[in-house]
Nucleic acid binder design. Structure first.
Lengths: 198, 198
DNA sequence: GAGACAAACGGAGATTTCTCCATATCCATA
DNA sequence: TATGGATATGGAGAAATCTCCGTTTGTCTC
Protein backbone atom coordinates (compact mmCIF):
# COMPACT_ATOMS: atom_id res chain seq x y z
CA UNK A 1 0.00 0.00 0.00
CA UNK A 2 0.98 3.61 -0.57
CA UNK A 3 3.13 2.38 -3.38
CA UNK A 4 4.42 4.95 -5.83
CA UNK A 5 4.24 3.38 -9.23
CA UNK A 6 6.91 4.07 -11.80
CA UNK A 7 7.31 1.60 -14.64
CA UNK A 8 9.85 -0.89 -13.33
CA UNK A 9 13.11 -1.46 -15.23
CA UNK A 10 11.69 -4.22 -17.38
CA UNK A 11 7.97 -4.70 -17.23
CA UNK A 12 6.38 -7.45 -19.21
CA UNK A 13 4.33 -6.54 -22.25
CA UNK A 14 1.04 -7.76 -20.78
CA UNK A 15 1.71 -5.79 -17.63
CA UNK A 16 2.21 -2.59 -19.59
CA UNK A 17 -0.90 -3.27 -21.61
CA UNK A 18 -2.98 -3.84 -18.51
CA UNK A 19 -1.60 -0.76 -16.79
CA UNK A 20 -2.82 1.32 -19.74
CA UNK A 21 -6.20 -0.39 -19.86
CA UNK A 22 -6.73 0.20 -16.15
CA UNK A 23 -5.67 3.84 -16.25
CA UNK A 24 -7.87 4.44 -19.26
CA UNK A 25 -10.85 2.79 -17.59
CA UNK A 26 -10.34 4.73 -14.38
CA UNK A 27 -9.98 8.02 -16.26
CA UNK A 28 -13.13 7.26 -18.19
CA UNK A 29 -15.09 6.49 -15.03
CA UNK A 30 -13.83 9.63 -13.31
CA UNK A 31 -14.68 11.74 -16.34
CA UNK A 32 -18.12 10.15 -16.36
CA UNK A 33 -18.69 11.55 -12.89
CA UNK A 34 -18.19 8.37 -10.89
CA UNK A 35 -15.36 10.12 -9.09
CA UNK A 36 -16.78 10.31 -5.63
CA UNK A 37 -17.50 6.63 -5.38
CA UNK A 38 -14.97 5.02 -7.69
CA UNK A 39 -14.99 1.29 -7.07
CA UNK A 40 -11.94 -0.72 -8.02
CA UNK A 41 -14.18 -3.66 -8.80
CA UNK A 42 -15.86 -1.49 -11.36
CA UNK A 43 -12.57 -0.21 -12.76
CA UNK A 44 -11.49 -3.81 -13.19
CA UNK A 45 -14.74 -4.71 -14.87
CA UNK A 46 -14.58 -1.77 -17.28
CA UNK A 47 -10.91 -2.43 -18.02
CA UNK A 48 -11.80 -6.09 -18.63
CA UNK A 49 -9.21 -7.26 -16.16
CA UNK A 50 -9.30 -9.12 -12.86
CA UNK A 51 -9.41 -7.20 -9.58
CA UNK A 52 -6.18 -8.84 -8.56
CA UNK A 53 -4.48 -7.22 -11.53
CA UNK A 54 -5.56 -3.77 -10.47
CA UNK A 55 -4.08 -4.32 -7.04
CA UNK A 56 -0.90 -5.88 -8.43
CA UNK A 57 -0.36 -2.86 -10.71
CA UNK A 58 -1.25 -0.06 -8.34
CA UNK A 59 -1.08 -1.39 -4.82
CA UNK A 60 -4.31 0.21 -3.62
CA UNK A 61 -6.88 2.89 -4.38
CA UNK A 62 -4.50 5.68 -3.47
CA UNK A 63 -1.87 4.28 -5.82
CA UNK A 64 -4.29 4.24 -8.71
CA UNK A 65 -5.48 7.77 -8.09
CA UNK A 66 -1.94 9.08 -7.72
CA UNK A 67 -1.10 7.47 -11.03
CA UNK A 68 -4.01 9.35 -12.58
CA UNK A 69 -2.63 12.60 -11.17
CA UNK A 70 0.88 11.86 -12.30
CA UNK A 71 0.67 13.41 -15.73
CA UNK A 72 -0.46 16.81 -14.46
CA UNK A 73 2.26 16.74 -11.85
CA UNK A 74 4.91 16.03 -14.45
CA UNK A 75 3.74 19.04 -16.42
CA UNK A 76 3.74 21.21 -13.31
CA UNK A 77 7.18 20.03 -12.35
CA UNK A 78 8.49 20.84 -15.80
CA UNK A 79 7.07 24.36 -15.63
CA UNK A 80 8.82 24.89 -12.31
CA UNK A 81 12.14 23.35 -13.25
CA UNK A 82 12.57 24.63 -16.79
CA UNK A 83 9.64 26.86 -17.63
CA UNK A 84 9.62 30.64 -17.99
CA UNK A 85 9.95 32.92 -14.95
CA UNK A 86 8.65 33.82 -12.50
CA UNK A 87 7.62 30.19 -11.92
CA UNK A 88 10.72 28.82 -13.61
CA UNK A 89 14.37 29.70 -12.96
CA UNK A 90 15.93 33.12 -13.42
CA UNK A 91 13.50 35.00 -11.22
CA UNK A 92 14.40 36.02 -7.69
CA UNK A 93 13.42 33.66 -4.89
CA UNK A 94 10.62 35.86 -3.58
CA UNK A 95 8.89 36.09 -6.92
CA UNK A 96 9.39 32.42 -7.59
CA UNK A 97 7.87 31.45 -4.25
CA UNK A 98 4.87 33.64 -4.90
CA UNK A 99 4.40 32.25 -8.41
CA UNK A 100 4.81 28.73 -7.09
CA UNK A 101 2.10 29.14 -4.47
CA UNK A 102 -0.25 30.78 -6.94
CA UNK A 103 0.27 27.99 -9.46
CA UNK A 104 -0.36 25.43 -6.75
CA UNK A 105 -3.65 27.12 -5.92
CA UNK A 106 -4.77 26.77 -9.53
CA UNK A 107 -3.59 23.17 -9.67
CA UNK A 108 -5.27 22.24 -6.39
CA UNK A 109 -8.54 23.88 -7.27
CA UNK A 110 -8.52 22.45 -10.78
CA UNK A 111 -7.80 18.88 -9.72
CA UNK A 112 -9.95 19.10 -6.65
CA UNK A 113 -11.99 15.97 -7.36
CA UNK A 114 -9.09 13.62 -7.93
CA UNK A 115 -7.09 15.10 -5.08
CA UNK A 116 -10.00 14.58 -2.70
CA UNK A 117 -10.28 11.00 -3.84
CA UNK A 118 -6.59 10.43 -3.26
CA UNK A 119 -6.76 12.00 0.18
CA UNK A 120 -9.78 10.00 1.22
CA UNK A 121 -8.12 6.79 0.07
CA UNK A 122 -5.10 7.42 2.26
CA UNK A 123 -4.45 10.76 3.93
CA UNK A 124 -0.78 10.14 4.72
CA UNK A 125 -0.03 9.14 1.12
CA UNK A 126 0.30 12.79 0.18
CA UNK A 127 3.39 13.21 2.33
CA UNK A 128 5.00 10.09 0.95
CA UNK A 129 4.45 10.95 -2.69
CA UNK A 130 7.15 12.01 -5.12
CA UNK A 131 5.07 15.03 -5.94
CA UNK A 132 5.03 16.28 -2.33
CA UNK A 133 8.75 15.60 -2.05
CA UNK A 134 9.31 17.82 -5.04
CA UNK A 135 7.08 20.61 -3.76
CA UNK A 136 8.68 20.48 -0.32
CA UNK A 137 12.20 20.52 -1.70
CA UNK A 138 11.44 23.39 -4.06
CA UNK A 139 9.69 25.57 -1.49
CA UNK A 140 12.41 24.71 1.03
CA UNK A 141 15.15 25.84 -1.34
CA UNK A 142 13.44 29.15 -2.05
CA UNK A 143 12.80 29.80 1.63
CA UNK A 144 16.39 28.98 2.54
CA UNK A 145 17.56 31.41 -0.09
CA UNK A 146 15.30 34.16 1.22
CA UNK A 147 16.06 33.54 4.88
CA UNK A 148 19.14 31.42 5.46
CA UNK A 149 18.55 31.26 9.20
CA UNK A 150 14.92 30.15 9.09
CA UNK A 151 13.73 26.57 9.55
CA UNK A 152 13.09 26.01 5.85
CA UNK A 153 12.02 22.38 6.21
CA UNK A 154 9.28 23.28 8.67
CA UNK A 155 8.17 26.41 6.84
CA UNK A 156 7.89 24.52 3.58
CA UNK A 157 5.56 22.00 5.24
CA UNK A 158 3.60 24.85 6.78
CA UNK A 159 3.16 26.67 3.47
CA UNK A 160 2.10 23.49 1.71
CA UNK A 161 -0.29 22.33 4.43
CA UNK A 162 -3.14 24.63 3.32
CA UNK A 163 -3.19 22.74 0.03
CA UNK A 164 -4.68 19.72 1.77
CA UNK A 165 -7.48 18.73 -0.61
CA UNK A 166 -10.21 18.71 2.00
CA UNK A 167 -9.28 22.21 3.17
CA UNK A 168 -9.17 23.60 -0.36
CA UNK A 169 -12.53 21.99 -1.01
CA UNK A 170 -13.95 23.37 2.21
CA UNK A 171 -12.77 26.87 1.37
CA UNK A 172 -14.19 26.68 -2.14
CA UNK A 173 -17.50 25.04 -1.37
CA UNK A 174 -18.36 26.02 2.19
CA UNK A 175 -16.56 29.31 2.77
CA UNK A 176 -17.00 30.42 -0.83
CA UNK A 177 -13.40 31.57 -1.28
CA UNK A 178 -12.34 32.26 -4.86
CA UNK A 179 -8.92 31.11 -6.08
CA UNK A 180 -7.91 34.77 -6.18
CA UNK A 181 -8.77 35.23 -2.54
CA UNK A 182 -6.71 32.17 -1.62
CA UNK A 183 -3.76 33.50 -3.62
CA UNK A 184 -4.06 36.88 -1.93
CA UNK A 185 -4.18 35.09 1.42
CA UNK A 186 -0.91 33.32 0.69
CA UNK A 187 0.61 36.66 -0.24
CA UNK A 188 -0.36 38.03 3.15
CA UNK A 189 1.01 34.99 4.92
CA UNK A 190 4.32 35.17 3.12
CA UNK A 191 4.63 38.94 3.37
CA UNK A 192 4.67 38.77 7.14
CA UNK A 193 1.26 40.24 7.65
CA UNK A 194 1.20 38.71 11.09
CA UNK A 195 4.54 40.10 12.10
CA UNK A 196 3.31 42.40 14.79
CA UNK A 197 2.17 39.28 16.61
CA UNK A 198 4.41 39.25 19.70
CA UNK B 1 -22.13 10.49 8.33
CA UNK B 2 -19.85 13.17 9.71
CA UNK B 3 -22.34 13.61 12.48
CA UNK B 4 -21.25 15.55 15.50
CA UNK B 5 -22.75 13.83 18.48
CA UNK B 6 -24.02 15.76 21.43
CA UNK B 7 -26.52 14.14 23.70
CA UNK B 8 -29.89 15.11 22.26
CA UNK B 9 -32.38 17.07 24.37
CA UNK B 10 -34.04 13.95 25.72
CA UNK B 11 -32.30 10.70 25.05
CA UNK B 12 -33.82 7.50 26.24
CA UNK B 13 -32.17 5.78 29.18
CA UNK B 14 -31.10 2.74 27.17
CA UNK B 15 -29.60 5.01 24.54
CA UNK B 16 -27.50 6.80 27.13
CA UNK B 17 -26.42 3.51 28.64
CA UNK B 18 -25.37 2.14 25.28
CA UNK B 19 -23.52 5.32 24.36
CA UNK B 20 -21.43 4.91 27.49
CA UNK B 21 -20.84 1.21 26.91
CA UNK B 22 -19.70 1.88 23.36
CA UNK B 23 -17.40 4.75 24.29
CA UNK B 24 -15.91 2.69 27.11
CA UNK B 25 -15.34 -0.27 24.83
CA UNK B 26 -13.76 1.88 22.15
CA UNK B 27 -11.51 3.62 24.65
CA UNK B 28 -10.46 0.28 26.05
CA UNK B 29 -9.61 -1.08 22.60
CA UNK B 30 -7.66 2.04 21.69
CA UNK B 31 -5.77 1.92 24.97
CA UNK B 32 -5.05 -1.74 24.31
CA UNK B 33 -3.23 -0.72 21.15
CA UNK B 34 -5.88 -1.68 18.63
CA UNK B 35 -5.97 1.94 17.53
CA UNK B 36 -4.63 1.62 14.03
CA UNK B 37 -7.13 -1.02 13.02
CA UNK B 38 -10.15 -0.33 15.18
CA UNK B 39 -13.09 -2.27 13.81
CA UNK B 40 -16.58 -1.13 14.69
CA UNK B 41 -17.72 -4.74 14.63
CA UNK B 42 -15.23 -5.40 17.36
CA UNK B 43 -16.25 -2.33 19.33
CA UNK B 44 -19.83 -3.59 19.17
CA UNK B 45 -18.81 -7.05 20.28
CA UNK B 46 -16.77 -5.76 23.22
CA UNK B 47 -19.53 -3.32 24.19
CA UNK B 48 -22.00 -6.20 23.99
CA UNK B 49 -24.24 -4.29 21.64
CA UNK B 50 -25.35 -4.73 18.04
CA UNK B 51 -23.41 -3.09 15.22
CA UNK B 52 -26.51 -1.19 14.25
CA UNK B 53 -26.52 0.47 17.65
CA UNK B 54 -23.00 1.75 17.19
CA UNK B 55 -23.98 3.34 13.89
CA UNK B 56 -27.22 4.73 15.27
CA UNK B 57 -25.35 6.39 18.15
CA UNK B 58 -22.33 7.73 16.29
CA UNK B 59 -23.14 7.81 12.62
CA UNK B 60 -19.85 6.35 11.43
CA UNK B 61 -16.29 5.64 12.42
CA UNK B 62 -15.34 9.29 12.34
CA UNK B 63 -18.24 10.15 14.62
CA UNK B 64 -17.16 7.61 17.19
CA UNK B 65 -13.55 8.75 17.14
CA UNK B 66 -14.53 12.41 17.40
CA UNK B 67 -16.65 11.52 20.40
CA UNK B 68 -13.59 9.92 21.99
CA UNK B 69 -11.65 13.13 21.39
CA UNK B 70 -14.41 15.31 22.71
CA UNK B 71 -13.39 15.34 26.34
CA UNK B 72 -9.87 16.58 25.64
CA UNK B 73 -11.27 19.25 23.38
CA UNK B 74 -13.64 20.46 26.03
CA UNK B 75 -10.74 20.82 28.43
CA UNK B 76 -8.69 22.65 25.83
CA UNK B 77 -11.55 24.94 25.02
CA UNK B 78 -12.03 25.76 28.67
CA UNK B 79 -8.35 26.63 29.06
CA UNK B 80 -8.62 28.99 26.11
CA UNK B 81 -11.89 30.61 27.09
CA UNK B 82 -11.47 30.97 30.81
CA UNK B 83 -8.04 29.70 31.77
CA UNK B 84 -5.02 31.74 32.87
CA UNK B 85 -3.10 33.88 30.39
CA UNK B 86 -1.35 33.81 28.05
CA UNK B 87 -3.63 31.08 26.65
CA UNK B 88 -6.69 32.48 28.37
CA UNK B 89 -8.08 36.01 28.27
CA UNK B 90 -6.29 39.11 29.56
CA UNK B 91 -3.12 38.65 27.53
CA UNK B 92 -2.47 40.64 24.39
CA UNK B 93 -3.51 39.10 21.12
CA UNK B 94 0.04 38.33 19.97
CA UNK B 95 0.89 36.40 23.10
CA UNK B 96 -2.43 34.62 23.06
CA UNK B 97 -1.97 33.51 19.47
CA UNK B 98 1.47 32.20 20.22
CA UNK B 99 0.27 30.34 23.31
CA UNK B 100 -2.68 28.96 21.37
CA UNK B 101 -0.48 27.53 18.63
CA UNK B 102 1.96 26.06 21.12
CA UNK B 103 -0.84 24.42 23.07
CA UNK B 104 -2.25 23.02 19.86
CA UNK B 105 1.12 21.49 19.05
CA UNK B 106 1.12 19.67 22.36
CA UNK B 107 -2.47 18.58 21.92
CA UNK B 108 -1.91 17.36 18.36
CA UNK B 109 1.24 15.47 19.20
CA UNK B 110 -0.27 14.00 22.34
CA UNK B 111 -3.45 12.79 20.68
CA UNK B 112 -1.69 11.79 17.50
CA UNK B 113 -3.09 8.26 17.37
CA UNK B 114 -6.73 9.15 17.76
CA UNK B 115 -6.43 12.15 15.48
CA UNK B 116 -4.90 10.00 12.76
CA UNK B 117 -7.72 7.55 13.14
CA UNK B 118 -10.28 10.32 12.83
CA UNK B 119 -8.58 11.74 9.77
CA UNK B 120 -8.31 8.39 8.06
CA UNK B 121 -11.98 7.71 8.72
CA UNK B 122 -13.01 10.91 7.00
CA UNK B 123 -10.54 13.64 6.11
CA UNK B 124 -13.13 16.40 5.59
CA UNK B 125 -14.72 15.72 8.98
CA UNK B 126 -12.08 17.86 10.64
CA UNK B 127 -13.35 21.00 8.95
CA UNK B 128 -16.93 20.26 9.85
CA UNK B 129 -16.29 19.58 13.51
CA UNK B 130 -17.25 21.87 16.36
CA UNK B 131 -13.69 21.72 17.55
CA UNK B 132 -12.32 23.11 14.27
CA UNK B 133 -15.00 25.77 14.26
CA UNK B 134 -13.86 26.87 17.67
CA UNK B 135 -10.18 26.92 16.75
CA UNK B 136 -10.87 28.78 13.52
CA UNK B 137 -13.04 31.38 15.24
CA UNK B 138 -10.53 31.91 18.04
CA UNK B 139 -7.50 32.23 15.78
CA UNK B 140 -9.51 34.43 13.44
CA UNK B 141 -10.46 36.80 16.24
CA UNK B 142 -6.88 37.14 17.43
CA UNK B 143 -5.60 37.73 13.90
CA UNK B 144 -8.27 40.33 13.23
CA UNK B 145 -7.28 42.11 16.39
CA UNK B 146 -3.60 42.10 15.43
CA UNK B 147 -4.18 43.10 11.82
CA UNK B 148 -7.62 44.49 11.16
CA UNK B 149 -7.02 44.68 7.41
CA UNK B 150 -5.80 41.11 6.91
CA UNK B 151 -7.94 38.24 5.64
CA UNK B 152 -8.39 36.68 9.05
CA UNK B 153 -10.62 33.85 7.87
CA UNK B 154 -8.06 32.64 5.38
CA UNK B 155 -5.08 33.13 7.67
CA UNK B 156 -6.77 31.20 10.44
CA UNK B 157 -7.25 28.24 8.10
CA UNK B 158 -3.67 28.56 6.95
CA UNK B 159 -2.28 28.58 10.49
CA UNK B 160 -4.39 25.59 11.47
CA UNK B 161 -3.64 23.57 8.33
CA UNK B 162 -0.25 22.35 9.59
CA UNK B 163 -2.07 20.58 12.42
CA UNK B 164 -3.43 18.05 9.96
CA UNK B 165 -2.83 14.77 11.80
CA UNK B 166 -0.98 13.07 8.98
CA UNK B 167 1.40 16.01 8.63
CA UNK B 168 2.10 16.17 12.35
CA UNK B 169 2.70 12.45 12.32
CA UNK B 170 4.97 12.70 9.31
CA UNK B 171 7.00 15.46 10.94
CA UNK B 172 7.33 13.51 14.19
CA UNK B 173 8.04 10.08 12.77
CA UNK B 174 9.68 10.66 9.40
CA UNK B 175 11.33 14.06 9.68
CA UNK B 176 12.11 13.60 13.36
CA UNK B 177 10.87 17.06 14.38
CA UNK B 178 10.43 17.59 18.13
CA UNK B 179 7.38 19.45 19.44
CA UNK B 180 9.73 22.29 20.37
CA UNK B 181 10.96 22.58 16.82
CA UNK B 182 7.42 22.72 15.54
CA UNK B 183 6.54 25.43 18.05
CA UNK B 184 9.62 27.43 17.03
CA UNK B 185 8.59 26.99 13.41
CA UNK B 186 5.17 28.47 14.10
CA UNK B 187 6.86 31.39 15.84
CA UNK B 188 8.88 32.07 12.71
CA UNK B 189 5.81 31.80 10.53
CA UNK B 190 3.82 34.21 12.66
CA UNK B 191 6.70 36.64 13.21
CA UNK B 192 6.93 37.31 9.52
CA UNK B 193 10.17 35.50 8.97
CA UNK B 194 9.32 35.27 5.32
CA UNK B 195 8.57 38.92 4.94
CA UNK B 196 11.40 39.78 2.62
CA UNK B 197 9.77 37.45 0.11
CA UNK B 198 8.75 39.77 -2.66
C1' DG C 1 11.26 -23.58 -32.11
C1' DA C 2 11.13 -25.98 -27.33
C1' DG C 3 11.79 -25.81 -22.50
C1' DA C 4 12.12 -23.55 -18.18
C1' DC C 5 11.42 -20.05 -15.07
C1' DA C 6 9.86 -15.74 -13.50
C1' DA C 7 6.20 -12.63 -13.78
C1' DA C 8 1.51 -11.60 -14.23
C1' DC C 9 -3.34 -12.93 -14.28
C1' DG C 10 -8.00 -13.54 -12.30
C1' DG C 11 -11.49 -14.37 -9.33
C1' DA C 12 -13.08 -16.67 -5.06
C1' DG C 13 -13.35 -15.28 -0.55
C1' DA C 14 -11.94 -12.89 3.94
C1' DT C 15 -12.61 -8.54 6.18
C1' DT C 16 -14.62 -4.35 7.01
C1' DT C 17 -17.97 -0.59 6.66
C1' DC C 18 -22.44 0.67 6.76
C1' DT C 19 -27.89 -0.08 5.91
C1' DC C 20 -32.36 -1.81 6.74
C1' DC C 21 -36.21 -3.09 9.20
C1' DA C 22 -38.76 -6.46 12.09
C1' DT C 23 -38.71 -6.62 16.92
C1' DA C 24 -38.09 -4.97 21.60
C1' DT C 25 -37.94 -1.27 24.94
C1' DC C 26 -38.95 2.97 27.19
C1' DC C 27 -41.90 6.55 29.07
C1' DA C 28 -45.68 10.16 28.91
C1' DT C 29 -50.24 10.09 29.64
C1' DA C 30 -54.39 8.94 31.63
C1' DT D 1 -50.39 0.68 36.48
C1' DA D 2 -51.85 -0.05 31.76
C1' DT D 3 -51.19 1.45 27.15
C1' DG D 4 -49.84 3.52 22.75
C1' DG D 5 -46.59 5.45 20.08
C1' DA D 6 -42.12 7.17 19.55
C1' DT D 7 -37.47 5.57 20.05
C1' DA D 8 -33.86 2.24 20.13
C1' DT D 9 -32.05 -2.39 19.24
C1' DG D 10 -29.47 -6.03 16.74
C1' DG D 11 -27.97 -8.81 13.28
C1' DA D 12 -28.53 -10.35 8.52
C1' DG D 13 -26.87 -8.78 4.37
C1' DA D 14 -25.26 -5.37 0.61
C1' DA D 15 -21.18 -3.25 -1.05
C1' DA D 16 -16.46 -2.26 -1.07
C1' DT D 17 -11.53 -3.14 -0.23
C1' DC D 18 -7.89 -6.04 -0.48
C1' DT D 19 -5.44 -10.99 -0.28
C1' DC D 20 -4.19 -15.44 -1.76
C1' DC D 21 -2.77 -18.75 -4.78
C1' DG D 22 -3.52 -22.12 -8.66
C1' DT D 23 -3.18 -21.17 -13.50
C1' DT D 24 -1.62 -18.74 -17.57
C1' DT D 25 1.52 -15.98 -20.26
C1' DG D 26 5.99 -13.79 -21.59
C1' DT D 27 10.62 -13.96 -22.27
C1' DC D 28 15.23 -15.76 -22.10
C1' DT D 29 18.32 -19.49 -23.35
C1' DC D 30 19.71 -23.16 -25.91
Amino acid sequence: MLTAMAAAPSERADAVRNRQKILAAAARLVAAGAAERLSLDEVARVADVGVGTVYRRFGDRAGLVFALLEEQHQLFRARVVEGPPPLGPRADAGDRLRAFLHALVDLSVGQRELLLLAESSSPPARYLSASYDFQHAHAGRLIAELRPDADAAFLADALLAPFAPSLIDHQCRVRGFSPERIKAGFDQLVHGTLESAR
